[in-house]
Computed example of a mutant assay.
Amino acid sequence: MKNISFLLILITSVMSIKAQNTAGETEVFATTAQAVGNITFTDTGNLVYSHHPFFSPENRVMIMDAKTKESKPFPNKAWNTPRTTDDNYLSNVLGIRNDENGIVWMLDMAQRDNVTPKIVGWNTKTNQLERIYYLPKSSVPKHSQPNDMVVDTKNGYFIIADEGIGNGGDGTNAAFIIVDMKTGKTRRLLEGTRTTLPENTPTVINGKHLAVNGKDLLVGNDGITADANFDYIYYGPLNGTKIYRIKTLDLVNEDLTETELDGKIETYSEKPNNGGMSIDTAGNIYLTALETNSVAVVLAKDKSAKTMVKDSNMVWPDGVSYNHVDGYMYVSAAQVNRGAVFNDGKDVSTKPFYIFRFKPIVKGVSFR
């Protein structure tokens, strides 16, 4: 009887711990030795992920075998090795996306080396370079920080969210960058406007403000995704209370003035301070809630924001992406708030770094 009572207490304790850690069914898919930024997938479901650039990793992008959990540099070691002879290598990458053609697109902010920012496309079917799109200074000025993007193969554009915090920027230059897939032409839009600017909603984690030299870091246009048909772009500043949306064809329409463009933006829903953003086929939007170790979901049926999954080890959940092979949403825990820049020059992050996964409400949208 005593043993049975002890067993019941043990089971109850375990259930209590799980309840405290998770709001939904989530699991640790893998752990890594370095911080993971964003995640995408190959046709076969292997994970391609960026090492978060805040930690100055040796290898910028990695690929993990979904079965063995073994990782190696992606697309190879040479592309992760800086050199002076050319700039066909990855400097620092956060945003990373796949498309239906088997191409993984990597958004290189190029802030660690004196090279041109660019989008590098690697064809995972042929294992060779597909194309490089260079981003000129007119589209990526001094305080630019191109963070994440939508790869819109239907309309033929890369749509990039620029946080506006590069090289000491304070978010006031946050914007969109539009790249024409056919011509490579780039344009910078809606810089420092009402929906790309951060709000005065500082990031506070465990009572501590995310600050640099005692000043709250306020981050502009950040999370971005598109619906299943590329009809709408959903986005918002990291530090902000709203998700906005705009018709894709309006956003890329060169005939619209900035004022006309701003007038076509809708306020879609409330949100917490968030990083990455994804969507499912029913229009439910998943976003990483940085301050609460969780992934939130904005329900399409009523636009209410709920906690989807939560875990005590989900410290600074960053990218969230759907794997079309196994039907799971994947989310990284990058521990950015524990990096040296936010802790008086001392890196207080702890190994391991986690990659979680969970089942979305309905089937996710694969290629965004």
Rank of each mutant, 00 (worst) to 15 (best):
D227K: 01
M149P: 04
I159S: 09
V212T: 03
K137E: 13
N200T: 11
A226S: 15
E163F: 13
K125L: 15
L218Y: 07
K137H: 14
G121C: 08
T225E: 11
D113E: 10
L129C: 13
N213Y: 03
E199W: 13
A175E: 01
Y133R: 12
N127E: 11
N229A: 10
M149S: 07
T116N: 04
L197P: 06
N114S: 15
L107D: 03
K142D: 01
I160H: 05
G192M: 03
G236L: 03
T124W: 13
Y235P: 02
G184C: 04
N200E: 14
L197N: 10
L189D: 03
E163R: 14
D170C: 01
M149W: 05
Q128S: 15
N147Y: 02
A228W: 07
W105T: 00
I205Y: 02
F230E: 02
G207N: 04
I177S: 04
D231M: 01
F176H: 10
V150D: 05
Y232K: 01
G168S: 11
H143Q: 09
K182W: 03
V179A: 04
K137V: 12
G223N: 07
Y157F: 14
K142V: 00
T225P: 08
N101Y: 09
Q111C: 05
N147H: 04
G192R: 06
I205W: 01
G164T: 14
Y235G: 00
N206Q: 12
V104L: 03
K215P: 02
R112C: 05
L129E: 15
E199S: 14
Y134R: 12
Y157R: 10
I159N: 08
D170Y: 04
P146T: 00
N127A: 14
P146E: 00
P117D: 13
K142R: 00
E191D: 01
M149F: 11
N229H: 07
